[in-house]
Structure formats: C-alpha cells, structure tokens
Amino acid sequence: MMREHGTLIVWPSLLAAGLLAAACTDQPNVNMAPKRPSFWFTPPPAQCVTGKWTGGGRIDPTGDRAASNYDNVDEPAGGQPAAPNPPPYMTGKVTFGFNVFLGQDGNGNCIVTKGEIEVNGHALKLAWHVSIHDGVDAYDGRPVYANEFSDGHRGGVCVVVGIPDMTARVNPGQGREGVQFEVCDNDRGGRQNTRSDAMRWRTAGHGDTGMTYLTGGNIVEHGS
C-alpha cells in the first residue's frame, strides 16, 4: 500500500517538474505564416499566438543598403516589401519606445489588444504616436492587425504592427497619418546586444526607414 501510495506521489511530481521546467523556459512565440505580398495591400494576417513586446531606443537609417546598420536579412523575412515603400527613405536620427500586447479577434486574426508606440523623426522634427486600447486604434477606431514570424537571424523573431496600416497622431499639429511599425528581437534569452535588434518605421507621407539595426536601446519579445 505504501509503495502504491508512493507511486501516486511520484508521477504527479514528475509531471509537475516537467511542467514547471517547460513553463519557465522562454519559448518562442512564432507564427510561421506564409510570406505575404506588398504590405499596404495585404489582408489581415493569419492567426498568431498571444505575445508581449516592449522596447525602445534609437536607429540611424541612412537609406544605404550597403551601410553596416542596414538589416538586409530581416527586412524581407515576413514578406514585407523592400524599402523604401513608400519612398523616400526616411533618414537621420529616429528614437522610439513601445509596448504592444498581441491577441486574436473572434475570427482568429492576430491583433494588438493594447499598445503604445512613440516614434520621433529628428530630421523631420515630427513625433508620431499610436495608441491602441481594447483592440482598437484610438485615432481611427479600427482594429490593429499584426503578424509575428521568424526572421533571418537564428532564434530571431519579428512583429509587424498595423496591417495593412494603422493611424498615428503626428505632432506638431495633431495631424493623422497611416503608419506601420516593425521590430525584430534577435538576441532573445541571451545577453542583450544593442546592435543586433532592428526596427522599421513606414509612413504614408514621410517615407520608410527600412529595417535598421539599433544604435542604442533594446527590443524584447517577452512571452505571453
């Protein structure tokens, strides 16, 4: 009887240990959705797992694909069009910070359930802000679709927010503009290296930075 009782304790313990180990491991939340055509005309993406992304810092896009900070590997990873799309290249210092939570709508589409994105284009002296609450863009009332996928770096993963686009407030002047935001976390779970992560900012009226490695800061995909 004792042995049987012992066995009853043993197996749940093993299961619990296994579950604990699995739960505490930083598993990638990657959607291997097929590549898609030009983003501005792409329908909402397929399903994605829930996920949380946070980060910020600075990029210095030059519009030169041969520049050492141009992330040619990640730019096409999600089926995104080659930059500049739309032209021209947005260059100069660009600083930013963001926090987005992913989820699914009733049809299983990948959406942003809540988020804040701030991007400052220093050469243009423009500040864009995107605010998403309860799955809706605060500036146009539409859902904000997203996509998450593996990128060209080992273990790397990217998220595109605003498919086919979303609306940002633009200051000065409280204007509105269609935008899209993409970031890649290429050092997940390891020692964080500022210059391995990347960011891309696309605007309907002010161009496209192209996928650019960070000059400073960090991008973190931190699970569901």
């Binding site: 910020g56 810092g57 930013f96 910070g97 973190v220």
Partner: peptide, 21 residues
C-alpha cells in the same frame, strides 16, 4: 525645441529590462 522623452520596460520569464531616451 523638439523635446521628446520615452521610456519602456518589461519583465519576462528569461530576461527583463528597461530603456529610455
């Protein structure tokens, strides 16, 4: 002029961090 401040932070199961500009 053109004054901007941003900060963000996160806690994950394997890493945590904050960044400000």
């Amino acid at each position: 002029d053109f004054l901007n401040s941003v900060t963000s932070g996160e806690i994950g199961s394997a890493e945590a961090g904050a960044q400000s500009t």
